[in-house]
Design a binder for these strands. Structure first.
Lengths: 137, 137
DNA sequence: TGTTTTTTTGCAACATTATTGCATTTTTCT
DNA sequence: AGAAAAATGCAATAATGTTGCAAAAAAACA
């Protein structure tokens, strides 16, 4: 309940209806959300622009991060680790189901070490696995 | 030289100016290409629609694949392995440089085995690593 | 609590990116 | 070369993302 306010206040954000509602969606969603999901689940009670700006604010503050996708959609998910403003450091494994098309953030799966050629320096690693999820198998 | 024709013919595609030019770009490019890159490098000699359709055709045939990105751009790269039409099976590691913003397809880096929770079946794995590339370090 | 300051929101307009149908052109096959 | 098939360009349309500015809401302060 107050988790919402906690997160917003910790990040020095004004508490508004829009931010509460959108952050609530993330807290109650197991997977990642696309912009369209958010618009759908807020009953169009907010302007598109507000959604865009809210998401951007959350990313800036390190509350959510975006997930690489192969289509041209942008997916967002909560940062579970202690991301700081402007500096995300989670190495995520995401799973996209070919059947139901859901994206699931696999918190319990760790990203293995990857050996890069000389001269390359890794900051962040995102792994996107496609296949069939446990619900659709 | 005839590599172009080879690829097109092997995939039962008509040989047209557009396809030759676009495929040529991929063959001569070390990294991945965005739609915008292609339009830029073809001197607007083709309609935007043609570029879209050509890229889609190449993806369908398994000549190129698209790469997950965290912004809303779509990147394409040649399939090095023997992808078949409608069935890509390359496990790619891609590197996005924070400095020069280039995307590099790391053919020599293999994707490590990732253990998924029970019930999940992996088809493809994409790894996107961001950091600083060897040119910018 | 009421007032001022700061921040956020909504609207409108605009920009960019992607898609579809159809007539014309190009390519392929014989 | 001629017929059939496929690809292209154009126009219109849709979807998606951005910006400026005035109104509204939230925060700060007395």
């Amino acid at each position: 309940m107050d988790q919402l306010l906690d997160i917003l206040k910790k990040n020095q954000l004004s508490v508004t209806e829009g931010r509460k509602k959108i952050l609530g969606l993330f807290l109650n969603s197991p997977g990642a959300l696309a912009h369209a999901d958010i618009e759908k689940n807020t009953d169009a009670s907010f302007d598109r622009v507000t959604v865009y700006r809210t998401l951007q604010t959350f990313v800036d503050k390190g509350i959510i991060h975006n997930i690489p996708t192969t289509d041209n959609s942008i997916l967002y998910a909560l940062c579970k680790d202690n991301c700081e403003a402007g500096h995300h450091h989670d190495n995520h494994v995401h799973f996209i189901c070919d059947v139901c098309d859901k994206t699931i953030c696999m918190d319990h799966v760790s990203v293995p070490e990857i050996k890069l050629p000389k001269g390359f320096k890794q900051r962040q690693a995102d792994v996107v696995i496609s296949g069939v999820c446990s619900d659709c198998k």
